[in-house]
Design a binder for these strands. Sequence first.
DNA 1: ATCTAGCAGTCAAAATATAGGAGTGCTAAC
DNA 2: GTTAGCACTCCTATATTTTGACTGCTAGAT
Lengths: 359, 359
Amino acid sequence: MEHKLSDRKKKVLRAVVDEYISSPIPVSSSEIQEKYFNDISSATIRVELSALEEMGYLVQPHTSAGRVPSSIAYKFYVENFIGKKPLKKKEIKTIDNFFDKKFTEIEDIVKTSAKVISEITNYTSVIVINNINNVLVKEIKIVGLEPNSALVIIITDSGIIKDNVISLKKFTNPSFIRDANVLINKIFAGYTVGELKTRSQMIEIELSDFRELLDCVIEILKNYSNKSAKNVYVEGGNKMLNYPGATLEQAKSALNVLEDKLLLGNLLDDKTDNIEFSFRIGKDETCGIDRCAIMTAKYTINGKEVGQAGVIGPERMDYGKVMGVLSYLSKSINSIAACKLIDKGEEASVIGEEDDEEK
Amino acid sequence: MEHKLSDRKKKVLRAVVDEYISSPIPVSSSEIQEKYFNDISSATIRVELSALEEMGYLVQPHTSAGRVPSSIAYKFYVENFIGKKPLKKKEIKTIDNFFDKKFTEIEDIVKTSAKVISEITNYTSVIVINNINNVLVKEIKIVGLEPNSALVIIITDSGIIKDNVISLKKFTNPSFIRDANVLINKIFAGYTVGELKTRSQMIEIELSDFRELLDCVIEILKNYSNKSAKNVYVEGGNKMLNYPGATLEQAKSALNVLEDKLLLGNLLDDKTDNIEFSFRIGKDETCGIDRCAIMTAKYTINGKEVGQAGVIGPERMDYGKVMGVLSYLSKSINSIAACKLIDKGEEASVIGEEDDEEK
DNA sequence: ATCTAGCAGTCAAAATATAGGAGTGCTAAC
DNA sequence: GTTAGCACTCCTATATTTTGACTGCTAGAT
């Protein structure tokens, strides 16, 4: 597959993909000739098309039909022709509106982001949070509720975790709670979640009074750092139904994949480091959904990689726009994190900047 | 439409619906004759079918086809022939498994319930929480977080509300928080949410220091008692795709209705008091989804009506099973509420008991 | 060499035709 | 009131034809 494409072949290939993306019917030689070339005839283009088909970039649904791009063609197309498309004013406004509120939890930001992505692109969005291990625990608060239960609030440098009600055998009276707060913070505050998981083994204090509570907190921290279904957010799954040409059967199976959060998480989790955008397509080993493309971007908050956001759409999606949205959002998230979540003046890290390439 | 149906007509009607539910193809006179009657001939049944069609209970897709039940027929069928079908052992076990954990929030219970209903019935489930007004506020805790923000935890007699981070201009130092807790509880504890909404107007204390905080808490309470999208939970929306005979177009529009939480909430909210199960069907003014039936039940915790749970399925759904599940769940919820949420020994109220009627 | 006009050949999709059969409604007899 | 019997309707499935959009090829032009 390591053919070098001539410039004209590239132009023809791009034309086919562009055409097919703008309307999903097989593209004919004459159509390309009319819209993209005025120096050569359709017959010549037919020769090129033939060659491109030979090389595996194009497919013919049947002998007397036009050409349709293969997965390889989409891949080539994205890698060679597509850059971030700048967002429209209106879209930027929409995004900014979504983020114009206070966020206290990472979860909140992530959910909102997923919504925004789906809204703007009109595709399904998926976000995975990972690497909770690097999150710094600033403070832990224990609040007594009922006589035997307490709420554990963990304040980190990237948000607040407040979803943990624990129940203890010990009676949670005010003085117990007070002491517990002091103790717990002495032990936990100032470390990252990752450190605490190992640190927890070392804690062998014979303060058996607090042992139970301690175990609960450690358990909570462990839970949060595990990769699990909890850390995958999907939005706009129904948008999958809009792909033209999809049958009900396909739609159903696609939606089922979306239900399986764990699998989805793995789909997004790209092994190849240091790329801004990752891109999978079709029914190869990595992408579970037929005739779909996944485009993902890595997200960082305060320079820490916190997860990936991705869009699942039909192969013939508006790649430029998707890239644009993912990129813009990455900036938004950083600035929110910088201003509203945390009171540090640190420069927020933004994923690599690239120029738009639009003809 | 106020015809009185003869016993034989009833039997025929029931036969048609039963047949059509078990497999959705128009039912013919001979089919009924073979399976349900051995005393009369198909010709006689044809006469009855004709009459039932005349009365609006049956519809003929075309001249030379069998009969299909109309919405009216389903209504009659449910109201006259169907009672709770007892659940299978396995199903009961599934339900009990779902509920075999600790719940601290109503929201948790509701989400789990929605999951269970959808799982067991294989239809879409919707639950609406209402009447938060009657909930008793037992205690309110303010926890300082960052210098200018605090978490408001409201402990009620039906669970804990802990999703409110507020931000204040005032610096939230420990002594402020301490005083605030005392004051807030003096004002709020022991009242129901409904009372507090009116009561809030009366509070005119010149403790301007706490005024801001007070307003926040009142705002939170108001928010929670408003009927809003937040209080509608949908589970298993994709199950709608399984209805045989649905087109992709229909599926899409159905899923769109499910997205509109507010509309859904209104759909479930039945005005007619004092009925155990409510039932809507078809595309009349109340039910937004074509060819679908909605069956709902009212739920109570500690004798207070807390909301409705419902199932949205095709007209030809297994009504008996749905009733059975809704009814069993109502009991489960009560016992959970009684044992785990609250430490009262009060007898949990259960919605009316009715005998199964199964031939 | 490279391009291109023109034409024969292909094949899906749309349109049309035909046959088959399930089911009803009616009638006349029981 | 029932029912057997038959004519009639009209959906469904299948086969057949027509159409037209493309391509691939070839032979001549550039």
